[in-house]
Amino acid sequence: MPIIGEISAHQKNANRPLIVGINGSQGSGKSTLADYLKLTLSESFGFSVAAMSMDDFYLTKAKRQQLATSVHPLLATRGVPGTHDYHHMEQVLTALRAGQNTAIPRFNKAIDDPFEASQWTQVTEPVDIIIMEGWCWGTPAQSSDALADSINTLESEQDSQGVWRRYVNEQVANHYQPLYQQTDMMLMLKAPSFACVKQWRLEQEQKLAARLSADDDRSGLMNEQQIETFISYFQRLTEHGFNTLLERSHAVWQLESNRAISAMSRPKEFS
């Protein structure tokens, strides 16, 4: 609520929308926090709020397969920078900041492809606040030296020459950091370690499966072994975020393994 109070005070006489970024590993509660901020800021404070996730800007399976063929096979799997439609992300942010009508895409993880455009979220009025949540939102590019050694089995066995991780790093530096720099307030939900992420991500998958009906397509769902492999794609940038985002964030919630909040800090002043 103190964060919401600061946002409200800042936006009372503002002449442009405020962009709030939320960073957190898979299953950390980013979507829950974004939903809470949107609900409270709109219903209790009267602001018009647009909330979205980086996940909803993932490229189609077909486009990721093209990257897998032309750049590196690991790019067939959604997740890392370079597997999002960053051009579309920039277009939506630009339209929202200009007060224009736009549509926020939605990605269907159950089939690993976007929903039809008819099911996207329509924004038909100017907004006061834009919330963008994402597992790597705000995480900067790494140094060349940091890319030299593999950090897990996925990298050592399937990216031994470092082609994939160098490509991802270039995408961050050239296309994602300019988007991150638009963030006015940065919030972080910090996991105690990457070891917690597997269980959190498994819980997410189980909740997704529980929401589906018997007739829904489940082809994109993963079992526990597949999830263990899947999260390896995220390890490098997640851990890099642990080491770099604290000083860049206006509020950091330290989480325990059960996602209870153990501490909160305010590394950077918001003004």
Rank of each mutant, 00 (worst) to 15 (best):
I3K: 05
I4H: 10
G5N: 15
I7M: 14
S8H: 15
K12G: 13
K12L: 15
A14K: 07
N15H: 15
R16V: 10
I19Q: 06
G21V: 01
G21F: 03
I22S: 01
Q26H: 12
Q26D: 08
G27R: 02
S28C: 05
G29R: 01
G29D: 01
K30M: 10
S31A: 08
S31G: 15
A34F: 08
D35N: 15
K38Q: 14
T40S: 10
L41G: 06
S42R: 11
S44K: 14
S48E: 13
A51F: 04
A51E: 03
M52W: 05
M54H: 12
D55T: 01
F57S: 03
Y58C: 04
L59V: 02
L59K: 08
L59T: 00
K61M: 10
R64W: 09
Q66I: 14
T69D: 13
T69S: 12
V71K: 11
L75M: 11
A76F: 02
A76V: 04
R78C: 02
R78T: 02
G79Y: 02
G79R: 00
V80A: 12
D85Y: 00
D85P: 04
E90G: 05
T94K: 14
T94L: 09
A98Y: 03
N101K: 14
A110T: 12
I111R: 12
D112K: 08
D113Q: 04
F115K: 07
T124S: 14
D128W: 13
I129N: 08
I129V: 14
I129W: 05
E133W: 09
T139R: 01
A141K: 08
A141N: 09
A141C: 10
D145L: 09
D145R: 11
I151S: 05
I151N: 06
L154N: 04
L154Y: 04
L154K: 05
E157P: 07
D159R: 08
G162N: 12
W164C: 08
R165W: 05
R165K: 12
R166E: 13
Y167D: 06
A173H: 09
N174P: 06
H175Y: 11
Y176P: 09
P178H: 01
Q181V: 00
Q181D: 15
Q182R: 14
D184G: 15
D184R: 09
M188Y: 10
M188V: 10
M188C: 12
P192H: 07
A195T: 09
C196H: 04
Q199P: 10
R201A: 03
E203C: 05
E203V: 02
E205P: 05
E205T: 06
Q206S: 07
L208Q: 06
L208P: 07
A209W: 01
A210G: 11
R211L: 14
A214L: 05
D215G: 03
D215I: 11
D217H: 05
D217A: 07
R218P: 06
S219I: 05
S219W: 11
M222S: 03
E224W: 06
Q225Y: 02
I227C: 05
E228P: 12
L237A: 00
T238Q: 07
E239T: 10
H240I: 02
F242D: 03
N243I: 01
H250F: 03
A251M: 12
N258S: 13
N258E: 14
R259K: 13
A263I: 02
S265E: 08
P267C: 01
P267Q: 00
